[in-house]
Design a protein around this nucleic acid. Sequence first.
DNA 1: TTTCTAACA
DNA 2: TGTTAGTA
Length: 122
Amino acid sequence: MRIGEMVRRTGVSERLLRYYEEQGLLAPERLPSGYRVYTETDVETVRHIRILLSAGLPTAKIRHMLACVRDDGPGLVPLCPTTVADLQRERERIARTIRDLETSQTLLDEVIARAPEPARSN
DNA sequence: TTTCTAACA
DNA sequence: TGTTAGTA
């Protein structure tokens, strides 16, 4: 199928589908005209990409992860032995980011709390 | 009409 | 990411 149908099937915009290709996440074949040709597998791959992206993984990690994942309907299943470790590492990275943001939030709360009454009316 | 690339908002 | 221009 060409990109138009992919947009309908996946709900992902043309722009984004081309971007995923540029990032090495998809590799559709080309017609002599230069038009991209996608397969059913690509539709599935886009679903995986969306899930991994929602999980906060960068496209570079997703690129390696795609070959190591299966889809049993309800969710993704990590296959390669390194995949689980990679996911745990990402989880830790996210946890670290959350902690940093909480520190920032606390700092802001303290500053806000010291504001004179009239200025705090937000 | 649909898609492509490249570049700008 | 959206949008746009000029094509094939």
